[in-house]
Design a protein around this nucleic acid. Structure first.
Lengths: 215, 215
DNA sequence: CGGAAACAACCAATCGATTGGTTGGTAACC
DNA sequence: GGTTACCAACCAATCGATTGGTTGTTTCCG
């Protein structure tokens, strides 16, 4: 087996991309993109406002004309990340509302993986730097996060009730399946010889096997 | 399903424990334990040497009589973490050397999960802060990390060759199964109503299902 | 049209605090 | 008397954040 080399980095080096339609226009948006890049590479504590401002091409003082603090830049990134996650997962759930639980689970895992392949930097910051946020700034994102976990828990419950799935410990299954997608953001990149759809399909199959669907 | 609440933290609050027999005696060992606690909670950049020294109960200057830099404290923690990981995985692999691939895979995943439940703080630091290390300080740990991945890849290869396993993309399976255990360190704690063995057994079953063993 | 007021964007300079790390020296113990 | 363990004081650098002020553009009034 040809294992690709493991690189000691937080995230694959790539352009900081935010979901369409959510990036504020002008300097605010460029601050967000620079913050995304640096928070993903160095973490919240490891990135300074001077680095962010320097990447944008403005003075560090100007940053405070757009955001009241470094934490507010992170908060907006975390909020965007959670909203994109929720939008994709809830869309996948309602689209497959009337399908068998196995198909709905596959759709959820596919959506979960794809949001991590499409915005890996945002996912790393959203999942890995949430703890650095003041509780009141983090609260809205925490609510969305719980909603996302409930989507996954509900489809597992439905599949268990109607006999499609077979799991000894459903709570651990939710944790394990949810964790599958999260890891993707740490290694997926454009240099990989697999497409986003290939990864999503394979991981959806892994999830179906974990719940023992179609046994 | 009763999902436990998700907490926005890097790692469960618990005592910083290092594997037996590897902790240096005296102040050096207490510096390691304090560094482990603070690096796990706040990351390498987010923890200061004054915090570490304060937790030990010594002046920050005294720390430099035991370690030449903050990075060297992290380097020793990362080295200990990787050596414990390698010791447990290679023991599990040789112990099941002559078993069927399915049994060997289960033993590997069990060992992988258990090292994360036994030393969650160390695992978080080892996996999550390796990137902050100078390349020459990280090199020995990177070698051990590759050895660990090869153990997993080899048992998968063996199971594929003799027909025990069935996987479309074995490299992704290695990545997914390896990622399963890593996540455990972020939520496992003493307040959980599952034992370390219960989690390890369930995750071993998940891994066996991912490779479609015993289908 | 012309001038004044309001505006958003920006920056040099600076704040007090903290950073990782160094110095010179003290006290205790074998 | 040498070694080990320790610390008060200090260093240059950087931290997040603030101040006072300069641009260029837009808006409104006469």
């Amino acid at each position: 087996m040809d294992l690709p080399a493991w690189e000691p980095r937080r995230v694959v080096a790539m352009a900081a991309v935010l979901p369409e339609g959510v990036t504020p226009p002008g300097t605010r948006g460029r601050i967000l993109e620079a913050g995304l890049q640096l928070f993903a590479e160095s973490g919240f504590a490891g990135a300074s406002i001077r680095q962010i401002a320097g990447m944008v091409g403005i003075n560090s003082a100007t940053l405070y004309a757009h955001y009241p603090s470094k934490g507010h830049v992170l908060a907006e990134l975390v909020r965007i990340g959670h909203e994109e996650m929720w939008a994709r997962l809830s869309e996948a759930a309602t689209r497959t509302r009337d399908d068998r639980a196995a198909r709905q689970l596959a759709a959820l895992v596919r959506a979960h993986v794809l949001v991590h392949t499409d915005y890996p930097l945002l996912a790393v910051v959203t999942n890995g730097e949430l703890h650095a946020l003041d509780p009141e700034l983090a609260a809205p994102s925490l609510r969305l996060r719980d909603e996302c976990r409930r989507l996954l828990a509900e489809v597992l419950e439905r599949g268990l009730d109607n006999g499609e799935f077979s799991i000894d410990d459903p709570v651990l299954a939710v944790t394990a399946i949810g964790g599958l997608g999260v890891q993707v953001a740490h290694w997926f990149g454009p240099e990989l010889d697999r497409t986003r759809e290939q990864v999503a399909d394979q991981y959806a199959q892994f999830a179906l096997r974990i719940v023992h669907a179609g046994h």
